[in-house]
């Protein structure tokens, strides 16, 4: 068959021919994209407030999920374990601020970026030391998360939605809305926006950078925990999840490093684009293109909008 036909016509014919499959793919992409968006949100929060590209976000997610499961395995009730994990994430935020950010204040971005790499290694090692390297099952049921699927008889076929995915979408929306409200309407949120806007101006009106950093890293930790629970419930909790976090990077460049809405839109674009690409175009290339398709989508966007879809345009001066 003509390759042009295979690329430009055939996939669409397939889509139109089986709308139920198409809807299923879109839904799966949507859920995946939602979770990418959540991870990207963690990056954006920290990048906005401290200008640090926090590479450790992915491992923070794994670490939070592992702590939760590990505590539960020790016999702690699921909800208490959740609270304790939040406590651990807070301690982590304080520790990072004290031990990493404060001594490195005013260093070039790349140095801080590398420091978060060091943090990644530290957390991988510590996590494996304490909780062991084996994959664990997320305690979804104990946390009251639904399981099983719902089947819809629409579009002339069966579209099945996993309840956990619906829950993930709902929780992600609540989290995003909550964060938006927190940024918009609280005192601390206003201070955070001030810091994001201009470090020095924020300092000069009496905002403590150190406190803000703790708050931001803690917020990123909470997002990491939520993401970790969701991803963990879909597969299981292991260090391989960290690779998923790398998928959030194209989301980030697509949406712009500094934009919360960008992270969400970017996440959905990447999630859906990736699933559709893999399902309809992947077989042409031998499959497995999911691993790089997201990056290529992002790269294509970047060529036209070098600061992402919603990123702030950087004005360069001599």
């Amino acid at each position: 068959m003509n390759p042009l036909y295979q690329i430009f016509v055939d996939p669409f014919v397939q889509m139109a021919g089986a709308p139920d499959l198409f809807a299923q793919t879109i839904w799966e992409g949507f859920v995946g994209g939602m979770l990418y968006a959540l991870i990207a949100l963690g990056y954006v929060l920290i990048f906005k407030a401290s200008g640090v590209f926090n590479f450790a976000q992915g491992i923070m997610m794994v670490f939070a999920a592992l702590t939760l499961v590990g505590l539960h395995e020790m016999g702690v009730h699921a909800y208490i374990a959740l609270l304790l994990t939040l406590g651990v994430m807070y301690l982590l935020a304080v520790g990072v601020e004290r031990a990493v950010l404060r001594p490195l204040v005013n260093q070039p971005d790349i140095i801080l970026f590398m420091a978060t790499f060091g943090l990644t290694y530290l957390l991988i090692g510590a996590g494996e030391l304490v909780f062991g390297g084996n994959p664990k099952t997320m305690i979804a049921k104990e946390l009251g998360l639904p399981s099983g699927g719902i089947d819809f008889n629409i579009l002339g076929g069966l579209v099945s939605l996993q309840r956990i995915d619906i829950a993930a979408a709902v929780i992600a929306s609540i989290l995003v809305a909550g964060l938006a409200a927190f940024f918009q309407y609280t005192r601390v949120g206003r201070a955070l926006r001030a810091v994001a806007d201009d470090h020095q101006a924020a300092l000069s009106v009496g905002i403590s950078l150190n406190e803000i950093w703790v708050v931001v890293w803690f917020a990123a930790g909470v997002v990491a925990l939520a993401t970790g629970v969701m991803w963990g419930a879909r597969s299981n909790v292991s260090f391989a999840l960290q690779i998923v976090a790398l998928k959030a990077l194209p989301v980030l460049i697509l949406g712009g490093f500094t934009s919360v809405p960008g992270a969400i839109v970017g996440g959905l674009v990447v999630g859906i684009g990736e699933k559709l690409g893999e399902f309809y175009w992947g077989p042409l290339l031998g499959g497995g293109i999911e691993s790089w398709l997201a990056y290529v989508i992002a790269l294509a966007f970047l060529l036209f909008r070098p600061h992402g879809l919603f990123g702030e345009k950087i004005i360069e001066r001599i």
Binding site: L104, Q107, I111, M114, A115, L119, L122, L123, G125
Partner: peptide, 15 residues
């Protein structure tokens, strides 16, 4: 695992 921890800590300390 210790190698990971030590490497990570060394990177931060060196920086």
């Amino acid at each position: 695992h210790l190698t990971y921890v030590i490497t990570g800590a060394m990177i931060i300390v060196f920086l």
